[in-house]
Nucleic acid binder design. Structure first.
Lengths: 223, 223
DNA sequence: TCCTTTTTGAAACAATCATTTCAAAATTCA
DNA sequence: TGAATTTTGAAATGATTGTTTCAAAAAGGA
């Protein structure tokens, strides 16, 4: 039983790690001790920034501890090893983006307006972030065998898909879009199109080009 | 003068390296010696395969020498260091793709048919290569500060752009496409769209989805 | 205040990294 | 064949990799 839990802990999951600790210390007198000094949330944001710039394989633990301003022993003691930290960074990133999306969706009364705004917003983000979307970068860098990360990225992608799918379906129902529109297909189409904008911008650094592509896409969509 | 050449050599370029060697040995009796045993062309293809799978930072020199089946001293003596080898792999990859594109273009009498075939071909390649396009992967992985690699990728992208641009312009001139089509914009649009297919396929591994997207794109294009 | 528990900092860890060294092997021309 | 020259293989280079160790510092509860 205990061995099984250790096995799990090695695989991943800090939740199970804590569960394991709770089992071990169960029955003992619970006693407080020295508290963690650094802000974990802030530390993860710093780590995300480094991973984003340098990629997973391009980032060393020293890069991380330097940026996070904590000792490696503290890092391993609280956030886990390099891979676990990376997982947390992805979770942090996707959660942040998710919140942003949901907030934006509420700001529009018409689904079509929301769609149009979404596309133009993406163009703005592409131009602002010279280093590209963290999720897309990671999808291309990390090995397909890393199922844990692959699943997180897929979830993120699925969320965006559902978000767009819902807007498109609403727009169709309202008669604002052509009634033979396939919301599923169109959602994928939009997602795959703006992924390419990141690459184009990395290579050409031409904001006007991205803006034109976004405008062209909106024109095609609304027709 | 000699110092300047050494400076250049360190920066990059095996051409300059050889030029430098020629200058040094100038006047000496030229005498042949042991010849290189391994096939450089084949070795570069093996190296490309490894870089493609693992990325630049994820690949070690041992990975490379193992796959290429040569000793590291031979590798450094002929192809250069890790970065120089990577540059040669990119050149090899883009050259190969360039040749393939040009060959395909000739096979069609109508530019519109060629365009349609191009899009469907890309979809097939996306589905076949589970690891995605090497140039796109590299664009997202390698630092924007690596100007040498960035330039090679930009050239490759520009070539595809010109290829598509020409076909579109011809199609418009023939009256096969709408006369208010902007060939420049549409070429970028096609390129950026299929870039996203790679990401979508990495995450979902759904061939039907990619095929549908390609068909949808052709439909939009021809309208 | 002292005991218990946890976090921290500095150092150390073995493994692996890219790269170099150098003698032995190989090859051509005289 | 032998001198000249280059490639090869094996080993070694020092630096850096991710991770661990452990004593000292810190903090709450008795």
């Amino acid at each position: 039983m205990v061995l099984l839990l250790i096995q799990w802990k090695i695989h991943d999951s800090f939740f199970l790690n804590q569960l394991f600790q709770n089992l071990v210390t169960f029955g003992k007198k619970a006693r407080m001790a020295r508290t963690v000094e650094f802000d974990q949330h802030q530390a993860i944001e710093k780590a995300l920034d480094v991973f984003w710039r340098k990629g997973y394989n391009g980032t060393s633990m020293r890069d991380l501890t330097d940026a996070m301003q904590i000792n490696s022993s503290s890092l391993y003691n609280t956030l886990g090893d390099k891979h676990q930290l990376f997982v947390q960074c992805i979770k942090h990133y996707t959660k942040r983006r998710r919140a942003l999306l949901e907030e934006r969706a509420k700001a529009f009364d018409s689904p079509l307006k929301a769609l149009e705004s979404f596309i133009n917003d993406v163009a703005d983000v592409v131009i602002k972030d010279a280093q590209g979307c963290f999720a897309i970068k990671t999808a291309f860098e990390v090995s397909p065998e890393d199922k844990a990360i692959q699943a997180l990225l897929k979830d993120d992608n699925d969320f965006t898909h559902t978000f767009l799918y819902t807007l498109i379906r609403e727009a169709v129902e309202q008669g604002a879009m052509n009634e033979d529109t396939d919301p599923d297909l169109l959602a994928d189409y939009i997602i795959s199109t703006y992924t390419g904008w990141y690459e184009l911008y990395i290579l050409h650094k031409d904001p006007a080009k991205i803006k034109q592509l976004a405008a062209f896409m909106v024109r095609q969509l609304l027709r």
